[in-house]
Write a protein that binds this DNA or RNA. Structure first.
Lengths: 197, 197
DNA sequence: GTCTATATTCTGATAGAC
DNA sequence: GTCTATCAGAATATAGAC
């Protein structure tokens, strides 16, 4: 606003995003309950009281991070229903691995901090997760109907595939022995075989 | 012994195990950092100070629970190396599902609270987990060598299979539509197909 | 072995100055 | 929008009586 320089605080105009980033990293590293508002403020470079200009409370901060993640996940998963079931399944497998690899902290929080949500917030996040799982389940059901594969129970296969794919985040590192696309290739081969395609 | 009745406290002679049980349930439900020593004591029926007759601190309580779980897991996994690879793999799949189903709280803690361990304790638990993973990896390598299946990378397949199997705990309930043995059957079929057996 | 009492530190959140 | 100061309560862990 053309005024003189301020003496303290961040005043950078991007405190909001910085709070979200700091909270994401700290919650992922130490867990929601183990992180204090003062720690988050310290990471951002402001005092604890300043956080409350951006979030009504700590719970809302957690919920917003999880909701954003799940919403982005659903938005990024394109639904090209015109494709063949086998192509749709392959697309899902490669997408899931790549998307989750790009945001390990958000993935970690979305799976680990569900029990720290209020019942209302928990229900909202679980609904979003259910929508995502349904996208895969619908692909598996379509492939059953078309005879593209032989999987017995689409519901079980949905859980199995998602657990298997999400597990990549626990061990895969870009700097390691394998490239992301090699990992995608091998998981796609395993998923394809597992459903009998 | 033989004295008059006491006025307060549990004095049941099994306070130690009760503390472990209460801590296991509370840590699984709310998370290690979110549970106080007072809550654990209240669940047991003693005052908080009494807990320190059984554990030097909260961290040791968590570590003991995780170490016990991993040790029992390794001990329960029999290694009948005489069997064929395909039989060994099937045995592993059915064992993993059944064992984890019987102790969901311990499994949950062993996966979720790793970040709340001190570096020294973390290394010890990770070593035990590595031993367990190696048991599966050795089976997969043996099957590669004998031509029992065609899986490309035994390391990746190990991670994929364990993640898939552990995921059962997130959705399977005994009271539901499927029995445990039906679930074991379907997961075994998926694993067998996934490795190309 | 458990109790009560306490030390010390930290917690989430708020009020009011600037 | 951020600061400082503060409230009210809860945390882990310990000391000493019984």
């Amino acid at each position: 606003m053309g005024s003189m320089a301020r003496t303290t605080g961040s005043h950078s105009g991007i405190t909001g995003p910085k709070i979200r980033t700091a909270a994401l990293e700290l919650f992922a590293k130490h867990g929601f309950a183990a992180v204090s508002m003062r720690q988050i403020a310290s990471e951002v470079g402001v005092q604890a009281g300043a956080l409350y200009n951006y979030t009504p409370d700590k719970q809302s901060l957690l919920f917003d991070l999880m909701q954003s993640h799940m919403t982005e996940l659903l938005a990024a998963l394109s639904d090209e229903d015109a494709a063949q079931p086998l192509e749709m399944l392959e697309q899902f497998v490669r997408f899931h691995i790549a998307f989750h690899h790009e945001r390990p902290e958000a993935v970690f929080i979305a799976y680990m901090e569900l029990r720290n949500l209020t019942p209302e917030n928990f229900a909202l996040i679980e609904d979003l997760r259910g929508q995502y799982e349904n996208r895969l389940q619908n692909i598996l059901i379509a492939g059953q109907a078309s005879g593209a594969w032989t999987v017995k129970d689409a519901k079980i296969a949905t859980f199995a595939v998602i657990a298997m794919l999400t597990g990549v985040n626990t061990w895969f590192r870009s700097e390691g022995r394998l490239s992301l696309s090699e990992v995608q290739d091998q998981y796609w081969q395993m998923v394809r075989s597992a459903v009998g395609g």
